[in-house]
């Protein structure tokens, strides 16, 4: 069935210049393989196409376990000169959590 990331994972947004970082941490470690499988860099790039102009790179961090997405050209120029209200992109973790994925085991 389809599930929303918000229901199984949490996330924190960070910024470096014009780059946005988004962690994706499953509440239950047993959901980590599902996230690895379904939430690819391409899926995130497509989901956030209104926000991220550049490349999305995914890092696997199995020791937590968690995924880390590094999204380039995502902060309309960066904290200091952007005209957006959320210049740091601090609210954008919840944009990632709006993603729906397929879970074959639910």
């Amino acid at each position: 069935m389809k599930i929303k990331l918000y229901d199984i994972a949490h996330s924190r947004a960070g910024d470096k210049g014009n780059t946005l970082t988004l962690s994706l941490i499953p509440y239950k470690p047993e959901d980590y393989p599902l996230l690895c499988d379904q939430v690819t860099a391409d899926v995130v790039k497509t989901h956030l196409n209104a926000i991220v102009a550049g490349e999305v790179i995914r890092y696997e961090v199995p020791n937590l376990p968690a995924l880390q997405f590094v999204c380039h050209q995502a902060l309309t120029g960066g904290v200091t000169t952007s005209l957006t209200m959320d210049t740091h992109g601090k609210s954008l973790s919840y944009a990632l959590l709006e993603l729906w994925i397929d879970d074959p085991n639910r």
């Binding site: 924190r12 960070g14 970082t21 962690s23 941490i25 890092y59 961090v61 937590l64 590094v70």
Partner: peptide, 16 residues
Amino acid sequence: LATAKEQLLYEVMDPA
């Protein structure tokens, strides 16, 4: 554990 995990990855451009 959850707050620590979020902070460990905060603003990290490459975990390695």
